[in-house]
Nucleic acid binder design. Structure first.
Lengths: 211, 211
DNA sequence: TAAAATAGCGTACACTTGTACACTGAAATT
DNA sequence: AATTTCAGTGTACAAGTGTACGCTATTTTA
């Protein structure tokens, strides 16, 4: 293991991944990239691509994994900030928007492949978003003392709202961004408030049943 | 006007539109369609395409308009049902899910082009969704006596949640669909509850300020 | 009725695409 | 030291792409 050869192979594999990521933009989706383009950008002959991935789909799924990793880093960063105090919702939204600003193309990848033409891609993206949601769910359950069910519904709704806001953020000017952030925060507050209200009511109901 | 020629032209234009719509599926996005394929499916020579659209983008934007039209029909249908009584939220969600079941490919078009590679497409889809949102906003403002601002935030959040649920519905079995519907309804209730709670508080605040 | 306009066709061309195949040189294994 | 493995190369090909151009047949206009 870890021979000169394996190291070099890993390096060019990385080059392919980076070449693909580098070609992504607002005007260019992963599915519009060609194997030849990516190989060329990585400084490889077209046919050398096959030494690393059996086709573009395999590379694409690797990118989605990579994106999921970035997403988890985001969460960690968010939690660190929250521990230092402040409004949880506000910090989360702001952190997410920062993530999008510096990882726009990775976020675009997730957004696009979530509704893309490959079932495998869609499943991969769903999985990453689900991890994200479940972590938030856990947090809500402990911090806000919610039913598991209500916590999940809230987490799911919140993630949907935030992702959607992120998508909107990609297409607007920086000065409008602030307004979007505030609107999103307010919407998350609606959800949080509604969840705890209705959760409390269910608990009351259950306790009535007990007597 | 209305000469034999114009009528025939409109007819083949329709054939092109229908050919394109007909090729859309879970595995096939609009951007993956080629001019030649669409022309062939419509029973035309490739170059005849240009007699009707200057390129595929122009055809695509026409499809988005068409999709928006279908969306507005959906709203009308929803309103009709609501007038006959019942839970507004429940009826809306169920109607939307029915729409997706019978117009899956049109909905997919909107979903995909919303985050696609053409700024013009994204803008067109945004516009259609905005109409949808504004109509809901109007309704909420009158029916629930909300601030214009709160009503908009609620409408926006609700549309986001419902669209997202629609996207999820496309990829699951029919039996799981019922569960998704119920979860979505619950999430919309969170939002509605939170909005009216926080709206009431703002009104109270404002009235305090007056004294 | 003669002339003009035009929807649709067929050919042609320059590109790009994925990938099969045979080859090379250096690293790994024996 | 001899042999095997294998990442990367270059050539080649069939298939598909958008679209320029000239032609035809029919409708529309003059």
């Amino acid at each position: 293991m870890t021979g000169v050869r394996a190291i070099q192979k890993e390096k060019t594999r990385r080059q392919l991944i980076d070449a693909a990521l580098g070609q992504l933009s607002a005007e260019r989706s992963f599915s519009s990239l060609s194997l030849r383009e990516v190989a060329k950008e990585a400084g490889l002959a077209p046919t050398s691509f096959y030494r690393h991935f059996s086709d573009m789909d395999e590379l694409g799924l690797t990118l989605v994994d990579e994106a999921g990793l970035t997403l988890r880093q985001l969460m960690r960063q968010s939690r660190q900030r929250i521990e230092k105090g402040g409004s949880v919702i506000q910090i989360s939204v702001v952190t997410f928007m920062e993530f999008i600003e510096s990882n726009g193309n990775i976020f675009r990848l997730l957004l696009r492949e979530r509704s893309g033409t490959s079932a495998e891609f869609r499943a991969a993206v769903s999985r990453e978003i689900r991890y994200f949601t479940l972590e938030l769910c856990d947090y809500l359950q402990h911090a806000n003392k919610l039913t598991a069910e209500v916590a999940y519904l809230q987490a799911n709704a919140a993630v949907t709202i935030v992702f959607n806001a992120g998508a909107d953020a990609l297409d607007i000017e920086k000065k409008e961004r602030q307004q979007l952030v505030e609107a999103t925060i307010q919407q998350l507050r609606f959800i949080a408030r509604g969840a705890s209200e209705l959760s409390a009511r269910v608990k009351q109901q259950n306790s009535d049943d007990d007597h």
